[in-house]
Design a binder for these strands. Structure first.
Lengths: 207, 207, 207, 207
DNA sequence: CGGTAAGCGAGACGGTACGTCATGTCTTAAC
DNA sequence: GTTAAGACATGACGTACCGTCTCGCTTACCG
């Protein structure tokens, strides 16, 4: 086994790490992910290339850490990690989906998030990281709220919260990723309505 | 304005075009999109680089044409361009979604389709092409079937077929793109059930 | 056998070749061989690095060709390829050795010649090229003149012209390479005297 | 003026110094001077890089000290620091030149000596050190013996011992450095003969 | 005899150059 | 006039060393 010897992370330069995050996010925002190069990040951060290669295996990995850092910084400021439970599931979901729509429309998030999503589509390794560190924690909030809703009878007894959540989030992601149609609050509301009450007429018998 | 002189497409070599498609699909399948290069495609196709640059603006554009060609070949063989209408919407949708699941799980389609999707996420220009030439024709089949269903009362009167379709297709795409969970027939069925009959208990009053 | 495919030299850019020679000689003269880099030569010549790597295996090989070109240009202008034969061997040799001293003291020749000599000392492959293409042709002039001298009785019958030539050229090279003492016309003269008439007193019996 | 503070050599680690010498000589012998790096020497010696940079200004300086140490060790064992004076100059010189030939053909000396010579050709600073510490002491032995020879009439009265010595040593160095022809005992003998008795026929009048 | 300051092994750092690869443009010869 | 072939300028890749620096640690000297 010829593992490359792991660097000693206790000696790691915090200043360089932060400069690299800032440079990566700035460049992806300004010139796009494809035109962002590791050399460019290093130059912008005032850092040697090797300092990047020492700590990250790829451009995508740098950006993932940078983006996670950005998200955590924002989360620390906002500090509201759960979906509210007012008892009115429909209202609670609309609130959250509207917030998600706003976030996806925010240019500061859009560029790096798209880049990471695109890389994940094509790179299963990165996808696993992306999902487990960024996406899944968010989805678990839905799981929690929907499980609570099931217990109080707000949603049908047999429903799998995982599938329920995807019914809400999947269409949103679809529009965002492929830009088929604009992402609006109205769309978020319509999605919640359809998902909760179904496409079939209320009176229709269950098949 | 110095427009590059448009090549004379009547003199274009059909053999080269087909060889390029085959080479592009083969290389993307074998080594992945990122490692596939225009030089590599040219070499594999036994073609000069310029022949590619003359007719396509980018690697992604080559692959898009190649993939469309592949899809059309397959469609010509199968020749079943519409979603069936047996009167039983639930059954019809499950049939189609199961078929879609099978297609997405087919390695011959997976690699190029992923690559095109990923590029589209990040390149709005390509996305427009990808959507209009590949995705939208497929989605229109749903629009048609759902519109018919609305007219016969199989789905609620006010429903927007576009949103209805995304409720079905969005979650599928989500799982496929980010590989969060496996894509199975059961999942397709569950999606149709949830979408048609809603998450909320049948007895619940419409909000 | 995995030979790297040989490039097609009929398509080679003459302009690039000349620019590379000029850049290489200029940089070696200005900053020294050690600080001269292939990137630097390429940049100065307005040429891609690959154009250098395509045609030469190393920095030293570039410089050798550049220097040979320089020497040939100069030789074309001077066009006096042989050691004169006035019948007076001593005078002829002093003339040539003084000219060699002047050449070695000329800064335009000194820098690249030193660099090539130094590399040759350490790289046997290069040394073979250096010797056969640059040094040996010059030494053959001595061989010719000394052989003629032997036939006319100007030097002893049994003498090996090769050794005779090294007796003259070796000490010159020694002073030049290691800069032990200055290289002057007087030194050249003294060398010829010693070599021709020997260190031992004229009257001394041959051992 | 910001002189770098001189390190306290009384605290210097003798073990490290010796390990560095051994590593330097070993690496130059095994992989050649060009591929020998300071990092490599440090790693092989089990020493921090700074320990090398603290005490030596360059790779060449390390190797010079290492080689001098090697030569001194050998000299301490052999302990015969002068050219013999049996009264027969020719025999004495042949003895010494043959010994020099053997030394230059010894692989243990060849690699580092070549490297130092090559660096000296190109780096005047190092050359001065190389000459004064290694070469000159050896040449002075010739000066001494040749001066004695002049006093006893074994060589011509007006002869400069410096030039005489170079007549012997220069050609040897020439063959060794550029590997033009093999270095043999016969060659050493021929050199002494030519240098002592001259190229011109014995009967020829002095010019 | 305990404090402190040096040398030390280790290795992260900002850099520079390496030699390779692919880009997109250009030129040439063959058809 | 398109084609296969491939040289060209450009520029990023990922690696290797450079020489400097900062960490703890040992180790001697000195107050």
């Amino acid at each position: 086994m010829t593992h490359r010897k792991a660097p000693d992370s206790s000696r790691r330069s915090e200043a360089s790490r932060r400069a690299i995050y800032a440079a990566a996010l700035a460049l992806v925002g300004e010139t796009g992910y494809a035109k962002t190069t590791i050399e460019g990040i290093a130059a912008r951060a005032g850092v040697g290339k090797q300092t990047i290669y020492r700590w990250w295996p790829s451009k995508a990995a740098v950006l993932l850490d940078a983006f996670l850092d950005l998200v955590e910084q924002a989360a620390d400021r906002a500090a509201e990690p759960a979906i509210p439970d007012t008892g009115d599931l429909e209202a609670d979901l609309k609130l959250v989906l509207r917030a998600t729509v706003d976030e996806l429309n925010d240019p500061a998030y859009d560029a790096p998030a798209r880049a990471l999503a695109a890389e994940s589509v094509v790179d299963a390794r990165l996808a696993a990281e992306f999902v487990s560190r960024l996406l899944e924690p968010q989805l678990q909030l839905y799981v929690k709220r929907l499980t609570a809703a099931r217990e109080t009878g707000q949603i049908r007894a047999g429903t799998d919260p995982r599938i329920a959540l995807e019914l809400l989030v999947g269409p949103l992601a679809h529009r965002w990723l492929l830009r088929t149609l604009p992402l609006t609050h109205d769309y978020a509301d319509a999605l919640v309505d359809c998902a909760l009450y179904g496409l079939a007429p209320r009176g229709a018998p269950r098949a």
